[in-house]
Design a binder for these strands. Structure first.
Length: 286
DNA sequence: TAACCGTGGAC
DNA sequence: TGTCCAAGGTT
């Protein structure tokens, strides 16, 4: 009934050669990758990660920069507060950890923007720690293979955590974690799983019971067009694409709905993603 | 707890 | 074409 050997064997043959998985990857590079990968596909992260590590190869090098530079080079990766978080991580690592990315889960959790998953991932992948690494891929694989359900619960539950904990092998826990994640990313996908290519198809409870459809509450999909988020993105793009501060009129031209525009701008200022400078000019945080 | 926080590709 | 979703975190 064990899933380990088939999944580990499958991973050995089919894993992607991602730069943050290579031997020469540093803990800092791995931390940067994990934050960039939050809710963001690998293919979009790759070029930004390469540029980022070339520009800021250490926490100290990023800590010297204005936070706005981190936001600028974040480009269009999305959720730009992650760029601020990464900059704040760099400053905290430099000030409190002597420039070295901390190795323990608890220390990592003290850093901004690092929650349960990211702390476990960095402690595992950068330092070889033994942790429950529970991301959306792992949750989906376990939901299907073990629980026989198409999708995991909306929020992570104690039984899920307990199950994942029980499956961590005695040796090389990080390899197991990355292998299950990779299986979820490449084979056991959300939309159209490639069960024909799955190494545990013969022991997947969901497949063996006829792939029953998800019967829980509908998975809420949020529209994006016309939302405050889209408006914030449009305003921030103006700031990001300008080498210096821009007049308020430049922001006004980027979004027609004035009420929404002002609300979004206030949000950006509150979040520290933008600053009001002299003469009604706005810019990235300095 | 559920809403909020960007963006673009796949279907 | 619009919907779904991608290595989550914070409030």
């Amino acid at each position: 009934m064990t899933l380990h050997a088939p999944i580990l064997d499958w991973y050995a043959e089919h894993n992607r050669d991602l730069p943050w998985r290579r031997q020469e990857a540093t803990p800092w590079g791995i931390l940067v990758s994990e934050i960039m990968l939050q809710q963001t596909p690998v293919v979009r992260v790759l070029p930004i990660w390469e540029e980022w590590l070339a520009r800021w190869p250490t926490p100290e090098s990023l800590a010297k920069e204005a936070p706005g530079e981190a936001v600028r080079h974040w480009g269009r990766l999305g959720y730009p507060r992650r760029a601020l978080n990464l900059h704040a991580c760099a400053k905290a690592i430099t000030a409190d950890f002597d420039g070295t990315v901390p190795a323990t889960y608890d220390e990592l959790r003290t850093l901004p923007g690092i929650g349960d998953y990211t702390a476990a991932a960095v402690a595992s992948f950068a330092y070889g720690g033994r942790h429950v690494v529970l991301d959306t891929n792992v949750r989906r694989v376990l939901a299907r293979a073990v629980r026989g359900e198409e999708f995991p619960p909306t929020a992570t539950t104690a039984p899920e955590r307990k199950l994942a904990e029980s499956l961590i092998p005695a040796v090389d826990a990080p390899r197991w974690a990355v292998a299950v994640m990779e299986l979820g990313a490449l084979i056991c996908t959300a939309r159209a799983p490639r069960c024909a290519d799955c190494p545990v198809a013969g022991r997947c409870q969901w497949l063996l019971t006829g792939k029953p459809a998800h019967d829980g509450p509908p998975r809420r999909g949020q529209t994006y067009a016309g939302t405050d988020r889209q408006c914030r993105g449009a305003l921030l793009a103006v700031l990001r694409d300008s080498p210096g501060p821009v007049p308020k009129a430049a922001l006004d031209a980027a979004w027609s709905n004035a009420e929404q525009r002002e609300r979004a701008l206030d949000g950006l200022l509150t979040d520290g993603l933008a600053e009001l400078l002299d003469d009604d000019f706005y810019g990235l945080p300095t």
